[in-house]
Nucleic acid binder design. Structure first.
Length: 447
RNA sequence: GUGGCCGUAGCUCAGGUGGUUAGAGCGCCAGGUUGUGGCCCUGGAGGUCGGGGGUUCAAGUCCCCUCGGUCACCCCA
């Protein structure tokens, strides 16, 4: 009698095989696009030393990190010295600093791995989820041109994923900081709060944000000027450039940020990226404050409520905690698990088997024939499953149907005497009798 | 970390004011004559009503505690 209820920790996504196939296809597409832009794969261990991972003791981050230790260490009363990675950026920083001497700069890496966060799980919030990250990291300085490459990658990626139209929103944190300091919002703490409120313009509307800012102690006139400049929403093409040029260059940060954004826009145009996919939106800020320049967010048109599905930005120094070298970079990240889960809810991902053919077994005398046919199909490159025990044909067909296997091979006594087989297509409900020697070629024609 | 809602078969849920052997749909299994699936028909398996305590002649139904799930906020992917 079972005594343990089979259940898993909340906040993890576990799929049935047909959905898992769809997920892997999506991951394959992402990887192919990353590689097509010349990014190299790396993989880091799930567990990092706590002294490495938890150096930036951000209060919230620390609260969400899963600590780990061996049972032996625990029995001896030691504090956990290991922790599960909560993102891919900190491990990248450690990786680059550790292997700096052997890497080829500018270093372009992609990384597709799970991360863990001890959150209160809710819809779209997971404790274990896959991130797909790319970053370009260089020593001393990194050209602004790399900032323009990111939207090209995002655009190619979401076009290939074929899940509808999307908008890549750009902003520049330097510009925002300059704007805030021009408005007298100087403290980094207050700036952080203001940027987070600005980020909510989309969701909460201008009035709610104005009230929230006023509650932070900002004067009404300042709030008004801020929302006038940052609040016109996403602007595309000429309108975006004109809006930027009309901004007052009140300080160095503002003019530098604005120039960076303008040059990114001009590079994007040169690359031939679809201009309808690109918008400038001065309200996006990204929560993380290690971004220093360009920032990106991507939303799916018509599904803005999902939030950003691909975000990133430019940072001044990736690994200041681990290395004396100055390592500026720019990168983007896809919260893949959330994206996949939401797309599945919206019915935007398919579900299929990766098994292409089922070879049935009608009677034991046909065992060697069926085994040979399955072998022929596999040699020809088709994913083939074979039924190993005889059973009613109706059951074998039902099995294939339920499993999502499109083709079924039937070779009973009659067919064997004729040197033929039945090839049934479950999708079209059609069936042809063909010579056994034609099997691979016929399957190839159908699939 | 703060606050709201919910816990009855594998899943989604019914079960007025407490009262005989707790139900439905879907799913699952087996049949509907010998080798053709998704439809239909018949039959079957499956629940100590999250757990513990209390009130009562009697509790899935009322009260308390506890565990679990879920949503919003915070923060984020």
């Amino acid at each position: 009698m079972p005594t343990v209820v089979p259940r898993k920790m909340p906040g993890v996504l576990e799929l049935l095989p047909r959905d898992q196939v769809a997920m892997q296809k999506m991951l394959d597409t992402i990887r192919q696009v990353f590689e097509s832009f010349g990014f190299l794969p790396i993989s880091t261990p799930a567990l990092e030393l706590t002294e490495v991972l938890l150096t930036k003791t951000g209060g919230d981050t620390e609260r969400q990190v899963y600590l780990a230790q061996s049972t032996g260490a625990r029995a001896q009363g030691h504090e956990p010295d290991l922790a599960l990675r909560f993102d891919l950026t900190v491990p990248l920083a450690r990786y680059v600093a550790e292997h700096e001497g052997q890497l080829n700069f500018p270093f372009r890496r992609y990384q597709i791995q799970p991360v863990w966060r001890g959150e209160a799980p809710q819809r779209g919030r997971f404790r274990e989820f896959i991130q797909c990250d790319i970053d370009v990291v260089d020593r001393d300085s990194l050209s602004i041109r790399y900032d323009a490459e990111m939207p090209a990658i995002i655009s190619e990626l979401f076009t290939r994923l074929d899940i509808g139209n999307f908008t890549i929103r750009l902003n520049n944190r330097r510009l925002l900081r300059g704007l805030l300091s021009e408005l007298g919002v100087e403290s980094a703490d207050l700036q952080g709060h203001v940027l987070r409120e600005l980020d909510k313009l989309d969701r909460d509307g201008i009035d709610a944000v104005a009230r929230a800012l006023a509650a932070r102690g900002m004067a009404a006139t300042v709030v008004d000027r801020l929302l006038t400049m940052a609040g016109p929403g996403p602007l595309k093409g000429i309108a975006a450039a004109e809006m930027l040029k009309a901004l007052p260059a009140a300080n160095d940060a503002m003019s530098q940020g604005r120039d960076e954004l303008l040059s990114v826009l001009s590079m994007i145009e040169m690359q031939g990226t679809d201009p309808n996919r690109i918008a400038v939106d001065l309200s996006i800020a990204r929560g993380l404050d290690y971004y220093t320049g360009t920032v990106y967010e991507t939303t799916l048109d018509g599904h803005e409520e999902l939030g950003s599905v691909c975000s990133g930005g430019r940072y001044d120094d990736l690994a200041s905690l681990y290395s004396k070298s100055r390592l500026p970079g720019v990168g983007i990240s896809i919260g893949f698990t959330r994206l996949f889960d939401q797309l599945r809810d919206l019915g935007l991902v398919g579900s299929a088997s990766n098994v292409q053919v089922l070879v049935t077994l009608i009677d034991d005398d046909g065992l060697s024939t069926s085994l040979a046919l399955a072998s022929v199909l596999r040699t020809a490159g088709y994913n083939t499953e074979m039924t190993m025990t005889t059973g009613k044909l109706s059951r074998q067909l039902k099995y294939a149907d339920k499993a999502g296997i499109p083709l079924v091979v039937i070779a009973g006594e009659d067919e064997r005497q004729r040197g033929t087989l039945q090839l049934r297509n479950l999708l079209t409900k059609t069936q042809v009798e063909i010579p056994t020697s034609d099997l691979a070629a016929t399957v190839g024609r159908i699939l």
